Simulated assay, not measured.
Amino acid sequence: MSEILKSLSDQGVSIWLDDISRERLRTGNLESLIRDKHVVGVTSNPTIFASALSKGDAYDTQLHDLAVRGVEVEEAVRAITTYDIRWAADVLRPVYDATGGADGRVSIEVDPRLARSTDKTVAEARALWWMVDRPNLFIKIPATVEGLPAITQAISEGISVNVTLIFSLERYRAVMDAWLTGLERAKANGLNLAGIESVASFFVSRVDTEIDKRLDKLGTPEAKALKGKAAVANARLAFAAYEDVVNSPRWQALKAAGARPQRPLWASTGTKDPSYPDTLYVDELVTAGTVNTLPEKTLDAAADHGRVTGDTIRPFYEDAWNAMAALKEIGIDYDDVVRVLEEEGVEKFEASWNELLATVSAELRKA
């Protein structure tokens, strides 16, 4: 068992694995990660499923049966992905029970091609919630402008939501408002608020990737000194915004009615720049009441040489504000950065979804 990951968990950080595959499930690998590396949740996305389907033979029998039945490719994708999610949810059910529903969660994403359609996103969220039929499920809904009312509607119906693709502080505040509105409607509908969970996935490494690229173009000593500073600062200020909300009378009224907080989740935490420490977005984003979802490579690195030195968020708000102010001063357009990142994020997930459809289509033809 990793003592470093135990220390991270003891600090109040929930460690989730950013990966799933049937091979991982059938070999018992997920159970071993829960036992040995303090993993208490799993996230998935179209890229992860496309990768899983391209390796090994774990899906061959189901693909064969789907092909024999003449199932259309999109229905086949749903059958394959929801099977894995149900299985993972069952593996994590003891964690869910032990943590009162906070952890032991497994996330599945709505079709990313629906990211700009509120009504279709809501319909998809309902369908996935029904198909998986596990209380420890999260439906991932992107934090696009069109996704915000879908988040509210899903939560108002008692569907637990993992809000994904959050890059900007302004959008994060809108996400928290959508979540609170959903809870208020759920309360008005007579639902048990204690059973509705949510996390908000704030993306980290991509912020540095985009801003560092712009800093390199500037090429000044001041610009170079700010490389690798933006992502951590942005995430720290997101947590400050979260603290503002959970200290508000609006949240306190919902909390008194049994509601649970929407925890910030650090996503995209594998470093993209090899010159940065591979545990940068783990070590520098430690505070109680957060989730860090890690690719296995980052999980292994954190287990081996991560640095858990206590709270690395709350004491550093001023540093974060100063870093963001310095970026603005030298000409980095934050609003344009987060706009580009959201557009690219949606496009990347759409491309992965299309790749997944193509992979399944090809496998069905072979089966």
Rank of each mutant, 00 (worst) to 15 (best):
G182D: 08
A52W: 03
S14R: 11
N189T: 08
E363V: 01
N136V: 06
R26N: 15
A98F: 14
D177K: 10
E347S: 14
I108W: 06
G219L: 00
R214D: 08
P221A: 07
G70W: 11
W129N: 15
A194F: 09
R314G: 06
G101R: 03
D18A: 09
L66N: 01
V204S: 13
K328W: 07
G190F: 15
N247G: 14
A301P: 01
E347H: 03
A240F: 05
E329A: 08
D304W: 07
A52S: 13
T164H: 12
E347C: 03
L25G: 03
L92Q: 03
D103N: 14
A127P: 02
V77K: 01
G70S: 14
D304R: 14
E72V: 05
D336G: 10
A238M: 10
A240Y: 02
A76K: 02
A257E: 08
L299M: 06
E344W: 13
S51A: 14
Q62R: 08
D65C: 11
D304V: 08
A178V: 12
W321L: 06
K6M: 03
T312S: 14
E296I: 09
G289C: 10
F202H: 12
E75N: 06
L327H: 00
L280E: 01
G28F: 00
S198V: 07
A115G: 13
R126Y: 12
A231M: 11
A200T: 10
P274Y: 03
R307F: 09
V360K: 02
E31P: 01
G228K: 03
V360I: 07
I4T: 12
G101S: 05
L299C: 02
G258C: 04
K217Q: 15
V73A: 03
T43R: 02
R126A: 12
A323Q: 06
S168Q: 10
E284F: 04
E222C: 00
A323I: 07
A362V: 01
L357V: 14
A150Y: 08
G258Q: 08
R24N: 08
A194R: 12
V163W: 13
K366D: 00
N322E: 09
G100F: 07
A125I: 09
V175D: 06
E363G: 05
W251D: 00
V132D: 13
D244Q: 07
E343F: 10
A88K: 09
Y334Q: 12
A188R: 09
M324E: 02
D90G: 12
K217A: 15
E72Y: 02
G270N: 10
E222G: 01
G28K: 01
R314M: 07
E296F: 08
D336A: 11
T118Q: 00
E31V: 05
T181N: 07
N192M: 10
A52F: 04
V71P: 07
G258N: 02
T290V: 11
F202I: 13
A326F: 02
K229T: 12
L215I: 04
T164I: 11
E222K: 00
R35H: 06
E75M: 03
T27P: 06
W130R: 15
A150M: 12
Y242E: 04
P149I: 11
R339F: 07
L280D: 00
A174P: 02
A288C: 10
T118M: 04
I196V: 12
V286Q: 04
D57N: 14
A320T: 05
P274L: 05
E342S: 08
G70Q: 13
K227H: 11
D60Y: 13
V122M: 07
V95E: 03
K213S: 15
T118P: 02
N189I: 09
L128F: 14
A102I: 15
